[in-house]
């Protein structure tokens, strides 16, 4: 299969909240298949907004700019269409859905995506086999499956569940929103292991994070500094270390 090597291209993206506050003030970013990009920045710089706008969350208005994903106009697609086209968002705060079995949820999602791709749906047996293999690979316990989606999960369990979903859905572009970085060392390792195992030549990963800590476990190809709604600096992984030492102040006023 041929892949366009340019997976995601963001040009001059401006977006504001429903109350009119402009959060993204001209983002430019190009992500090639096979790459891991880290986007770093202080609180309020627009990191989570960028993730939300790319995933198609309602409540944001794009006022200017373009986003091309696999050669298509991403912004013209609804949130669920983007997901079925292979865009995955790992939630900073995964949402609870009471009464809905975690496995049932994941199967519904996977089959929705398979239908979209014209692939046959997995029946319960096939799905269970796929799930077991993936759980083993990621060293996640099976008890997670029979519980209601994220209900009563610890922080670490929620994180594991997100990574597990990502592994099952096999996205083309994964955006990991770890802005808050409230991750304990255990959860940090789960995310890092997941990301490292998910690296593939036909997949791109965008890691959004506040601290450099996560990057001790995942080695990004590119690092971007987001400040007051703009990417002010891009570089290789050494940029992250520079940030760790000097903080964001070196790149301009901290919002």
């Amino acid at each position: 299969m041929e892949f366009p090597s340019l997976m995601l291209e963001i040009r001059n993206l401006h977006a504001r909240l429903g109350d009119g506050r402009e959060i993204l003030k001209g983002i430019d970013l190009a992500v090639t298949a096979g790459e891991v990009h880290a986007i770093m920045g202080p609180n309020g710089s627009g990191k989570s907004t960028l993730a939300a706008v790319l995933a198609g969350r309602e409540g944001y208005e794009v006022t200017a700019g373009e986003v091309t994903y696999l050669g298509r106009d991403l912004l013209a697609l609804a949130a669920d269409e983007r997901a079925r086209e292979g865009l995955f968002l790992d939630f900073q705060y995964p949402v609870e859905i009471p009464g809905v079995n975690n496995m049932y949820f994941l199967r519904a999602a996977l089959n929705a995506q398979r239908r979209h791709r014209g692939e046959p749906e997995l029946d319960a047996g096939q799905f269970l086999r796929a799930v077991r293999a993936k759980l083993k690979e990621l060293e996640i316990g099976e008890d997670l499956l029979q519980r209601a989606v994220n209900v009563g999960f610890s922080g670490g369990e929620k994180k594991r569940n997100e990574i597990f979903q990502m592994a099952m859905l096999e996205p083309r572009l994964a955006i990991l929103d770890e802005t808050d970085s409230g991750l304990d060392i255990d959860a940090l390792r789960v995310v890092a292991t997941g990301v490292n195992r998910q690296r593939r030549s036909d997949r791109a990963i965008i890691l959004i994070t506040h601290y450099q800590r996560l990057l001790n476990y995942v080695e990004p190809d590119r690092v971007h500094v987001l400040l007051a709604g703009r990417i002010v600096e891009s570089g290789d992984k050494s940029l992250a270390l520079e940030l760790e030492r000097g903080g964001y102040a070196a790149f301009g006023s901290v919002g």
Partner: peptide, 25 residues
């Protein structure tokens, strides 16, 4: 909206998302 968006981000249509949430309820 969080629940709906979460379901849709995994690929479910808005109708399927509501149906899933309601069935859980």
């Amino acid at each position: 909206d969080d629940q709906l968006f979460y379901c849709r981000q995994r690929g479910l249509t808005p109708e399927d998302a509501v149906s899933l949430i309601v069935n859980g309820f």
